[in-house]
């Protein structure tokens, strides 16, 4: 039997607690779904659901098996995603440090425009982006799952080649900048990405905040939305890369980045790594981030 397909039935019925609704979720009719569950129960030798006048209830055995079923389904999804990445050889698998926040779309547009006429003349889309913490991106690069990554500096880059340090100005977010408030006057903590994204860069930022007269207190926000929420709630301020509209604040520690690529021998020949790295460096250094 197709075990994965039938485990999908199992999970759907467990979620919906109703054969009709589960069938609708799966885009099928109820009879083949019921038969599928029966087949799975026979195959496993375990009853997964109790069916009675009141409806469907998962059995104790079903509850025990459900987490393993979900793990298998998730792993299958991961495999399909990974295969999809590998099936697009000309596309650049580009890692982007989550710290770039609002500058990510502008960076991708600039890099895409820059690359299409050069390295990727025959490809449709130029770039498959992955936005994550820098430590994770470095691991992905080393494992050959990314081609190029722009990561926060400083960080450990053993086994990789990296370009120059790119220094992006930042500004305070969530305070009345017009009133001349600098970091030293800020009493709130600074909302920052999780330390584990790039521990040495995080520690360097905390030291720089203290050097500038701030307490160095930080709140680790798991993502941009959480950071924005903290700032909007008045619980923290942000130190974010500048946009065209708002110039950098010289009292704010800059965001430092480097573009990392594998050593020459470990690069995919389909990708012009140097051209991609140069495009990123141009996009990030040609004035304030968009």
């Amino acid at each position: 039997m197709d075990l994965l397909k039938h485990l999908g039935f199992f999970a759907a019925v467990a979620d919906a607690r109703h054969f009709g609704n589960a069938a609708a979720d799966l885009g099928m009719t109820q009879p083949p779904l019921s038969q599928g569950i029966l087949r799975l129960e026979r195959h496993l030798g375990v009853r997964l659901f109790d069916r009675d006048a009141r409806g469907v209830r998962i059995t104790a055995a079903g509850r025990r098996l459900l987490p393993s079923a979900r793990e298998l389904l998730d792993a299958a999804d991961d495999l399909v995603v990974a295969a999809r990445d590998l099936a697009l050889p000309e596309q650049v698998r580009l890692g982007i440090a989550a710290d770039l926040e609002d500058a990510v779309p502008g960076l991708l547009r600039a890099v895409g425009v820059d690359l299409v006429p050069k390295a990727l003349a025959n490809a449709g889309g130029a770039v498959v982006p992955t936005v994550a913490g820098s430590v994770e991106l470095v691991d992905l690069l080393r494992d050959g799952l990314l081609d190029v990554a722009v990561v926060r500096h400083p960080g450990v880059l053993d086994g990789l080649t990296a370009g120059p340090v790119l220094v992006l100005p930042t500004r305070l977010e969530g305070v009345d900048v017009g009133a001349g408030v600098g970091l030293a006057e800020v009493r709130l903590p600074v909302a920052v990405p999780p330390r584990h994204h790039q521990p040495p860069a995080h520690d360097q930022l905390v030291d720089a905040l203290r050097r500038a007269g701030h307490s160095g207190a930080v709140v680790e926000a798991r993502d941009t939305a959480q950071r924005r929420a903290l700032v909007a709630a008045g619980a923290a301020v942000g130190v974010v890369p500048t946009t065209v509209e708002q110039p950098g604040d010289p009292s704010c520690p800059p965001l430092r980045l480097r573009v990392a690529v594998p050593h020459a021998a470990q690069r995919r020949p389909e990708v012009d790594h140097d051209a991609v790295a140069a495009a990123i460096e141009r996009a990030l250094t040609s004035g304030p981030a968009r």
Binding site: P154, G155, V156, L157, P200, A201, D203, Q204, D207
Partner: peptide
């Protein structure tokens, strides 16, 4: 070998 270049890194 530290990623950070600073001279004083008590951590």
């Amino acid at each position: 070998r530290a990623a950070r270049p600073e001279r004083h890194l008590p951590r």
